[in-house]
Simulated assay, not measured.
Amino acid sequence: MSDTSLTIDNILAPELTLCRVPASSKKRVLEFIAEQIHRHDESLSETQIFNNLVSRERLGSTGIGQGIAIPHCRLEGLDHVVGVLLTLEESIEFDAIDNQPVDLVFALVVPKEATSEHLELLSQLAEKFNERAFCDGLRQCDDATTLYKRMTTATE
């Protein structure tokens, strides 16, 4: 990629945008994310992604409040950023900072040599998810196509 600025729409694939995913626990959500990424790119290890996401959660929950979580981790051998967007069928406990259950998840898996760009991406996400109207719009989606469009077209 010649363009060095990473934006949400160039890291999120429609196939990794899923609506109303049934999940019973935080662990299950992280497993599901790892499965989806592996299915999307079989060269990436599902187990490694899952373990890295779990390790990151142990440092502190990625539940940022208001029903939103941004689980993320670094991955050896990855050469691009992978984003996964999920809305959950029902809110789940995520040890979020405000103790609210989570129903909106944006996972980010970045190369091991993560740069300031990746931090920039996390702050872009946090900023978008800080807008209640934007989040409500995502939660109202009934299908993945609409969800993908709402997530990628609302970029400033």
Results as ranks from 00 to 15, higher is better:
5 S>P: 12
7 T>K: 09
10 N>F: 11
10 N>W: 11
12 L>E: 09
13 A>Y: 07
13 A>R: 06
14 P>E: 04
16 L>Q: 05
16 L>P: 00
17 T>N: 03
19 C>S: 11
20 R>A: 12
20 R>W: 04
20 R>Q: 15
20 R>G: 11
21 V>F: 07
21 V>N: 08
21 V>I: 13
22 P>T: 14
22 P>M: 11
27 K>T: 15
29 V>L: 04
29 V>A: 05
29 V>G: 02
30 L>G: 07
30 L>T: 10
31 E>G: 10
32 F>R: 11
32 F>T: 14
32 F>V: 11
34 A>L: 05
34 A>R: 10
35 E>K: 14
35 E>I: 14
35 E>D: 15
35 E>S: 15
36 Q>E: 14
37 I>K: 04
37 I>R: 03
37 I>C: 01
38 H>S: 12
38 H>E: 10
39 R>H: 15
40 H>M: 09
40 H>S: 14
40 H>Y: 15
41 D>V: 02
43 S>V: 11
43 S>W: 02
44 L>R: 08
44 L>D: 02
45 S>R: 05
46 E>S: 15
48 Q>H: 14
48 Q>I: 15
48 Q>L: 15
52 N>E: 12
53 L>K: 03
54 V>K: 06
54 V>M: 11
55 S>D: 12
55 S>M: 10
55 S>V: 09
56 R>Q: 08
56 R>E: 07
56 R>P: 03
57 E>L: 01
57 E>D: 02
58 R>F: 05
59 L>G: 01
59 L>N: 00
60 G>A: 08
61 S>F: 01
61 S>N: 04
62 T>Q: 09
62 T>W: 00
63 G>S: 08
63 G>K: 03
64 I>N: 06
65 G>S: 09
67 G>E: 06
69 A>N: 02
71 P>K: 00
71 P>L: 00
71 P>Y: 00
72 H>F: 05
72 H>Q: 10
72 H>I: 04
